Amino acid sequence: MRVYDRERQDWVDGRRERLHQPDRDLDLPRQQRVVRRGGMVLAAVGMCFGVWAFGWKDEPEPPPPPPSSPTAQEQEGTGPSAAATETADGTATASGVLPDTYREVQDDEGFRIAVPADWTAERRPSKYGIKIVNYSSPDGLRRLQIFQLEEPSPYDSLVIAQEEAARRDGYERIDMGPIPSAPDDAAEHEYRTTEIAGDADPGTVRHVIDHRFRAADGNRYALVAYGPDNQDSAERELIETAAAWFCPPATTCPAPDGSGGG
């Protein structure tokens, strides 16, 4: 008798079908194992895909592009009010434009400097380096002194000068120390006193700023401003302007306003 074998999709002899039945029974567990293994593989693939998709979703966005560099105009500023000058000792000063009442001077001792226009100079010998130069106001109440230092550093020289000033009458220390922007190359001592060597009006309180620095030629110099105690800002302007324009002897320096110079 012929029967229809659904697995083979064919009509087969009934006896032959019975002979094939044990083989199918033996093959059934193997088929089940194959199905189970296939399911495990699909599950593992699905898990890997899920992990990848989750990681891709949470991946951080790329960092934003760096800010654009400032233009040359932004770096240098615009106009005299934004200008800043670096002195030979590395300290920042006010604008490189001379105050209205100042003039640039090429001194006989070889250095360049800027002082009030109506001030006059006198010189006296020094035991070291250039002569001691004093620029004084017409009334003799204000003065700027320039000289060269023998000590190995501006601060070492300032310590010696401060110890001497402290022994004079009326000494009152305001501030003293290295200038933060150039600790090894510049230092300053600001004080009040009633006794100054060579002062025409002894006993009057004077305001003093003693600024010592290393210049472009590698040598050390001092700029010392003296004036009445009630004009502290005037001495500060005098020191900052002189320091900005100072250029040591036999040295080529740019002008503070960037226009060149010597």
Score class of each variant (00 low, 15 high):
residue 74 E to M: 09
residue 107 D to C: 11
residue 139 D to V: 12
residue 27 D to R: 15
residue 42 L to P: 06
residue 117 A to P: 07
residue 86 E to W: 10
residue 249 P to L: 11
residue 201 D to C: 05
residue 236 R to N: 10
residue 6 R to M: 02
residue 121 A to K: 14
residue 95 S to A: 04
residue 214 R to S: 03
residue 177 G to I: 02
residue 44 A to P: 01
residue 36 R to L: 14
residue 98 L to N: 08
residue 80 P to E: 14
residue 120 T to M: 15
residue 173 R to T: 09
residue 118 D to E: 13
residue 252 T to S: 00
residue 197 A to P: 02
residue 258 G to F: 07
residue 227 G to P: 11
residue 63 P to E: 15
residue 10 D to E: 06
residue 180 P to K: 06
residue 28 L to Q: 13
residue 124 R to H: 04
residue 178 P to A: 14
residue 107 D to I: 00
residue 201 D to Y: 15
residue 187 A to L: 06
residue 136 S to W: 08
residue 236 R to E: 11
residue 193 T to F: 04
residue 30 R to N: 15
residue 80 P to F: 09
residue 118 D to P: 07
residue 242 A to V: 01
residue 145 Q to Y: 02
residue 50 G to D: 05
residue 69 S to Y: 07
residue 1 M to Q: 13
residue 254 P to E: 07
residue 124 R to G: 08
residue 156 D to L: 07
residue 16 R to G: 12
residue 164 E to P: 00
residue 74 E to Y: 01
residue 11 W to G: 12
residue 43 A to M: 14
residue 86 E to A: 12
residue 260 G to D: 01
residue 134 N to E: 05
residue 116 P to V: 13
residue 8 R to N: 01
residue 34 V to L: 13
residue 215 A to K: 01
residue 217 D to R: 12
residue 112 R to H: 08
residue 233 S to W: 10
residue 14 G to D: 15
residue 59 E to T: 12
residue 245 W to L: 04
